[in-house]
Nucleic acid binder design. Structure first.
Length: 819
RNA sequence: GCCGAAGUGGCGGAACUGGCAGACGCGCACGACUCAAAAUCGUGUUCCUUCGGGAGUGUGGGUUCGAUUCCCACCUUCGGCACCA
């Protein structure tokens, strides 16, 4: 056996052996519990994987290996979320079909993941762009449609008359097209939506049932944005009812104006003849603002008076009705009651336009004046019969009284909007709908799925706001599935997030043909036990997947309501060059290929684990790989020496050691704990620390031959999930053990045997460490105190002062309070 | 602006429920091996010090026998949301 660890040789030796054994195939032993550990499936880009990706995939691989050794059947699959705009843009600029570029990118990703020896069950690989897959994405569209959860509505999008195309929000600068500087307009398009808002309350409530990082749950809660309040009705002169939503009905007597969103349907009706020009000018002006401008919170609060007023439901006084674009049409009812005294925005608006403010809430019921806005709860004044009430009481009283008079009701509003899924793009799953003159939007029957993407040559935008698919006339024109008359296919494709809203189910039975999944396989593996990915999907993928899961549950397809029982976010890996995320365009990418070529796969794996805590953002450091590589070399050398000596039977002279045994139990205990907790950095540190101990113990002649044999056997198994190659080589070639180390059981420990018989106890005087004493674990407290007090160093520190108290923490510390 | 996370040696980071701050690794210094270098091995490495000690986990307070850990205020960095009535 060679002195130096030769990773190239060892990797080349075991890789094909494992592949031939199908080592990572999901287990099917009926006597073992099942475990599903899943990575967010990636969008394969042309850049390939960086070491940053390794930080995502190596920890889950280690965890999967750990679970296998702990006696679980483990499902750990991988696939590709490959529909999307980048592939389409790449196709346009490189003149290559996205199907082809996607294939190439996936090949690269797969090769690199194999290089990292990620223990995926490759037989279950899926690809969201294959008709076999998106057939079922379309099937789910039909399911949602059938259940009234998919609907069409007119939506507004930015439109550049110069370029004849739809623009993304980010492509509109100061109301002009970023390319041709043409003034943009808005174009109303018929778009498909999924009714996620219908699930808002369940999406909110069920967060309490899942083991996810709190920050992610909080982001979802904020995104859903549930607010309890009241709808209050103001009656306009012509009889029209203006409903406003407020969370503060207690401030109702402070209303001095109403404000409608520019898009509010009543604006035109309420605008008087004399105000016509001013109002339409204002609406045109605010339509031109980009969402970004319109949402800037520090800008002036603009608006115009409609000329109309409405009657206050409680005071009967007229209140002027304004149009203001700080009011959003998409939230509440698109109209607000203006309470300048108690709402910051209304305060700013009133000040700008010379509107009055009435003080109706003060901290203690004594008037303070309305020079500033007071938006906290308090005590009501100037509020008729409600004066003197505290805010909380007034909120429910006023709401109830309004309801009794038919002028309002309790109401809950959400920030969450329905999910717009139409994309005017080629590279996506076609929406399975046929538009028929007489039958309307007709779903394609399930047995006619998939609606396959037609082959076209030109993926560039059409210029008429329609998908490039619209140009594939042969494909577009099709008989109506209902009446057989000539009809046209829907030409929009689905948002890529539709594909990722159910893929975790597909892995349970990836080749199943009679449905999106085999119910038995899903019942066995799902929900996902551990789901791992970046925090950037907190309110997109993770919300959509939860939504679809609940829909499937309601449809009786599955028996669980949450798809991911446990979620963990891995931290980002930043470049050491510029401290930013690695990306090809910044030229700061370090590839796993180059690192593995220089230091080996095991060292690379160990390094990304050791660099920092699993969930913390860390900076790449090549020196860290060297540290891990050295550790592996030292392990190799020690094992070599021990094996050689055993061969020469010299080991018989070594002496048995209790401490040696104890530390073995302690190590197994630490590793077991760290692995289960995703604390891989300290797991690696514990192995390093223990190796340092072993090297010293070997030199000192500590540990009998049998103890060393057992120690190396255990240590190699503990190392196996982290460094699969070196541990396999040691296990089989050096230790001569039968079978793969990766099919062995995880070592066990006894907590009692991991505990030391004697411990060092710190002796403090007034909280400062003055001495350390060694005592037996079971030592009686009085004697420990006595030993502590009698220490010369302690006596010196006490310096003759009276002892007031002695605090003793068993096996840890004695603190003598003197003075 | 609002919400959230985090601030520990020269660096990345340890410290389970309040109990030895700095594990482990990097880097650096010195030594061994070598003609020499690399690699490897060994020793040391928070700062200050009059060598007795003293200070120290972003800053300032507080609770406690005892605080990196708990509480209050503030500063900095990062992430999310951004007129949500």
């Amino acid at each position: 056996m060679s002195k130096k660890y030769n990773f190239e040789q060892v990797e080349a030796k075991w890789q094909p052996v494992w592949e031939a054994m199908d080592l990572y195939a999901a287990g099917h032993d009926p006597d073992k519990p099942d475990r599903y550990i899943l990575d967010f499936f990636p969008y394969p880009s042309g850049s390939g994987l960086s070491v940053g990706h390794a930080r995502n995939y190596v920890p889950t691989c280690v965890s999967a290996r750990f679970m296998r050794m702990q006696g679980y059947n483990v499902l750990h699959p991988m696939g590709w979320d490959a529909f999307g705009l980048p592939a389409e843009n790449y196709a346009i600029t490189h003149n290559i079909h996205p199907r082809e570029s996607t294939r190439l990118f996936c090949d690269t990703y797969r090769r690199q993941m194999k290089l990292l020896e990620c223990s995926y069950d490759w037989a279950r690989e899926i690809n969201s762009t294959h008709p076999d897959y998106y057939r079922w994405t379309q099937w789910f569209f039909l399911l949602l449609h059938e259940r009234g959860l998919a609907y069409q509505a007119l939506g507004e999008q930015w439109w550049c008359p110069g370029c004849q195309t739809i623009l993304a929000n980010e492509q509109v600068e100061n109301g002009r097209c970023w390319r041709c500087d043409h003034e943009v307009t808005k174009k109303a398009l018929q778009q498909w939506y999924f009714k996620i808002t219908e699930y808002a309350d369940r999406l909110l409530a069920d967060l309490d049932t899942i083991d996810w990082p709190e920050p992610i749950k909080l982001m979802q809660r904020n995104w859903i944005g549930r607010s309890e309040g009241a709808e209050v009705v103001f009656r306009a002169a012509g009889g029209d009812e203006i409903a406003v939503f407020t969370t503060r009905p207690d401030t109702l007597f402070g209303v001095t104006f109403l404000a409608l969103a520019p898009e509010h349907p009543l604006v035109a009706k309420l605008t008087t003849a004399g105000r016509q020009t001013a109002v339409s000018d204002y609406i045109a002006q605010s339509r031109r603002k980009s969402d970004i401008d319109r949402q800037a919170t520090n800008q002036a609060k603009t608006g115009v008076f409609t000329g109309s007023s409405a009657i206050h439901p409680l005071t009967g006084q007229p209140v002027p009705v304004w149009v203001a674009d700080y009011v959003l049409m998409g939230y509440g009812s698109g109209a607000v009651m203006g309470v300048p005294g108690h709402d910051e925005r209304d305060f700013a608006f009133a000040r700008q336009h010379g509107l009055e403010a009435i003080e109706v809430i003060t901290p203690d019921g004594r008037p303070q004046g309305v020079e500033a806005c007071f938006s906290d709860y308090g005590v009501l004044i100037n509020s008729g019969d409600y004066s003197g009430m505290d805010s909380q009481t007034a909120v429910s009283r006023i709401t109830a009284d309004l309801a009794a008079q038919g002028k309002g009701r309790q109401h809950v509003s959400y920030k969450l909007r329905d999910w717009l899924i139409s994309r005017q793009r080629y590279w996506g799953a076609p929406i399975p709908i046929v538009h028929c003159q007489s039958c309307g939007a007709v779903p394609v029957p399930a047995d006619q799925l998939p609606v396959e993407l037609p082959d076209i040559d030109d993926f560039a935008p059409s210029g008429n706001g329609r998908s490039p698919l619209a140009r594939a006339a042969d494909w577009v024109n099709t008989p109506c599935p209902r009446c057989g008359q000539p009809a046209q296919r829907e030409t929009d494709t689905m948002d890529g997030f539709a594909c990722s809203s159910w893929y975790f189910l597909r892995f349970a039975s990836p080749r199943y043909e009679d449905g999106p999944f085999d119910p038995a396989a899903v019942a066995r593996w799902l929900p996902v036990d551990t789901y791992v990915g970046g925090a950037e999907h907190a309110v997109m993928h993770l919300l959509y997947a939860r939504f679809w899961t609940k829909v499937m549950f309601d449809a009786g397809l599955i028996s669980f309501t949450e798809p991911f029982t446990q979620l963990r976010n891995q931290g980002m890996l930043l470049s050491n060059v510029d401290g930013r995320k690695m990306s090809k365009s910044r030229g700061n990418v370090v590839t796993p290929d180059e690192v593995a070529a220089q230091y080996g796969t095991d060292a690379l794996r160990g390094c990304v684990l050791f660099l920092g805590p699993f969930d913390a953002e860390v900076t790449w450091e090549e020196t860290a790989v060297r540290g891990v590589a050295r550790f592996l070399d030292r392990f190799w050398r020690l094992v070599g020496e021990v094996a050689q000596e055993a061969f020469h039977a010299k080991a018989q002279r070594r002496k048995e050691s209790k401490e040696f045994e104890r530390r073995r139990h302690e190590l197994v205990q630490r590793l077991t704990h760290d692995m289960a907790q995703f604390r891989f950095n300290t797991a690696v540190a514990a192995l390093m620390e223990h190796l340092n101990y072993l090297l010293a113990a070997w030199e000192a002649g500590e540990g009998s031959a049998a103890q060393w044999q057992e120690m190396l056997n255990v240590y190699t198994r503990l190392l196996a999930p982290i460094a699969p190659f070196i541990s396999e080589e040691v296990w089989q070639a050096v230790l001569g053990q039968p079978g793969s180390v990766h099919q062995q059981s995880w070592p066990s420990f006894e907590a009692a045997k991991a505990a030391a018989a004697q411990v060092t106890v710190v002796v403090q005087v007034n909280g400062k460490v003055r001495d350390r004493i060694v005592v037996d674990v079971g030592e009686e407290e009085g004697r420990v105190k006595q030993t502590a007090v009698s220490s010369p160093k302690v006596q010196q520190a006490i310096n003759g002062q009276a002892i007031h108290n002695i605090i003793i923490i068993p096996q840890k510390l004695v603190n003598i309070v003197a003075g």
